[in-house]
Design a protein around this nucleic acid. Sequence first.
DNA 1: ACCGTAACACTAACGGTTAGCGTTTTGAAA
DNA 2: TTTCAAAACGCTAACCGTTAGTGTTACGGT
Lengths: 200, 200
Amino acid sequence: MSTPTGRRERKKAATRQKIADTALRLFLERGYDAVGIREVAAEADVAVTTLFSHFASKEALVFEQDEDFEQRLTRAVTGRAPQGPLIPALRREIHALVRHCTADGAAPIWHMIDASPALREYEESMRLRHAESLAAAIAADPGLSRSPTACRAIARFAIDAYALAREAADPQAAVDEIFRMIEAAWEATRPSGTRGAAGA
Amino acid sequence: MSTPTGRRERKKAATRQKIADTALRLFLERGYDAVGIREVAAEADVAVTTLFSHFASKEALVFEQDEDFEQRLTRAVTGRAPQGPLIPALRREIHALVRHCTADGAAPIWHMIDASPALREYEESMRLRHAESLAAAIAADPGLSRSPTACRAIARFAIDAYALAREAADPQAAVDEIFRMIEAAWEATRPSGTRGAAGA
DNA sequence: ACCGTAACACTAACGGTTAGCGTTTTGAAA
DNA sequence: TTTCAAAACGCTAACCGTTAGTGTTACGGT
C-alpha cells in the first residue's frame, strides 16, 4: 500500500510536477495574470484538459505545495505530548509556518500572491477549510472537553493569527502577541471547576 | 446635495433596482449557478454591459443590500457611549446582525448562498474587508490604546463570531459563547497597570 | 438653445473551465 | 500470454463571466 506502485503513478506524478513547475516559473517570470492557462499547458507540453485533470483551478497551481499545511496543523494537535497544553503546541506550529513562508526564498511567491486578488481570495478560502479541519481535530481530543463552537472559534483564531502575522512588520512578535489573546480566550472556555491546573 | 437632483439619478437607481430584483428572483427560482448573466440582463431588459456598470460582478448582485454591514460595525465602535466598553458594544451589534440574517424572510437567500461555493468565497472576502475597517475604527479610538495587531485580531475574531454563529444550531447562544472568549482575549491586551477598572 | 457628460447599448472578444468523445497506456485478471 | 477495464491524455468546441471599443441617447447646467 505504501510503495507497491509502478510506472503509471510515477508518470502521473511526473506530469503533475512538470505542470506545476512550468506554471510557477511562468507566473514568476511574467506575472500571474499575464500568463494564461493555454500558455502554461503549451509550455508544459500537455493539453489544457490534462492540466485541469491534475489541478482544480488556475489558482491551485500556485498553492500546490501547501497541501501539508492542513496536516501540520492537525498533527500539532493530535501529535502533541499526551495531556499536553493545546495552545502552546498550536503557537509553536503557527510560528514555524509563518517562519516558513516569510523565509527569503519564498518571498517572490508571496509577493505574487499578494499582488493578485484572485490568489488572495483563493488562499483565504483554503485557510477556512484548514480551520474546519483544525476545529475537528481539537473537538476530537478527549482531553479537551469543549463545545463545538468553542473549538471552531479557537481554530479560526489560530488561522487569523497566521494570516495577520504574515502581514505584520515583525511576524514572529505578532504571533506571540495574538497567541496571548488566544490563550486567554481558551482559558475562558474552560468548564467551571477546572481552573488552576495546567491548561490542557 | 441630498435630493435636489432629478430624473437622471432616479432612472439610474430604478435601473439598478430592477436588475437586482430580477437577478434575485431568477436566482431563487432556478438556482444561482443555473442562471447566467446574459439571462439576467435579458430579463431585466438591459444590456450585459449595463448590468456590469451597476454591479462589479455576478456575486455582487446577491449581496446588494449588505453594504451597510460595514457601516453598522464601525458605528458600533465609534458611536457607542463615550468611554464605554468596546466588547459589549460589538457583541450587541453582532447579535443584531446575526438575528437579521437568520430571520425567517431571509432564509431562502442564505440557503442559496450556502449552496454556492462562489458566493461563499465572495462573502468571506467581503467579511475580510469589513474586518479591516473595523480594525481601523478600533485603532482610531483614543480611549483604547492597543497595538495595531491587537486591533486587527479582535476585529477578525468578531467577524469570526458572526460567521460561526450563522452556522450554529443556536446562533444567539453561539454569539454569547464566542464573545466570552473575545472578552478574555481583549482583556489580555490591556496595557499593564490598567487592570481592574471598567473595561474600556 | 446648446454642450458636456453620464447612462445605456451593441459587437466582439478574452480567459478560465468543462462536456463530449476518441486514443493510448498500463495494471491486473483470465 | 492474452485480454480487458480503467485511467491518463488529447482534441474540439463550447459555455460563462467579464471587458474593451465604439457609438447613441437622454439629461442637467449654462
